[in-house]
Amino acid sequence: MRKLRRLAENIGFGFAVLVLIAPAILVFLWMLSLSLKNELDNTAWPPVFIPDPPTLDNYRDVFARNDFLLYARNSVIVSFGATFLALVIGVPAGYGIAKMRAMRAAALILIARITPGLSYLIPLFLLFQWLEMTGTLWPIVITHLVITVPIVVWVMISFFEGLPTELEEAALVDGATIWQAFRHVAMPLARPGITVATILAFIFSWNNFVFAMVLAGRETRTLPVAVNNMLTFEQISWGPLSAAALLVTLPVLLLTLLAQKQIVAGLTAGGVKGV
């Protein structure tokens, strides 16, 4: 009797977990399904769920009718550029803030986290117009620093604070400069933290929409902007649209699957220490 009750409980719990993860699975599967069907099946009623036969025409269409590769290249340059620059300046900054215990400086960085990205755009838009930089990728890379620098600094502060200080102190006693102690002792120890910061900064830069939407010209669109334009300017053709949407988000989904542990660690560290 007791065994039976436990079995019923387990089945109930399994069902609850299924209900919890079903929305995530179903939306992504529906995206995949739409991208593999022809237009007739995509607008059929009742809906066709399993593509039969599956077709890659939508994906061919995306590459044939848009400068998809150009936009992909832009996205790669912007996200890698903004992440790289953020690491170069953000890792030392995280170290310095952790050493100085300058929590007020850290709080200033937090404000960037709590204000909407849109609120930075008016002055920066005017500035880039005045500098005649619109039409290049630079304005987009620079504005993405609004996202990537706070992430990197924030994650690095919590990692450097968690490091034991004995090794650095030993290096300093042996005559190393503070830069050498940072470069050759603290930084190698904080490598897991740097990995976390890199992944998070890259994903949030890749996903960002609003900066590029305002600042990008025809040639400098990033993928999210390009995909949004497909919705606005084309007749609604669900297949190619879904194929493009899936291609845009696939890199970050794969990254999430591969680096799930680091992402969880980074988000909870940033969050719990964060506010």
Binding site: N207, F209, T256
Partner: peptide
């Protein structure tokens, strides 16, 4: 992992779907 996927997905792409 499946449960946290929506959080990391590109908002624009998901919004289209």
């Amino acid at each position: 992992t499946i449960f946290i996927l929506p959080m990391m997905a590109t908002p624009v792409a998901v919004a289209l779907v």
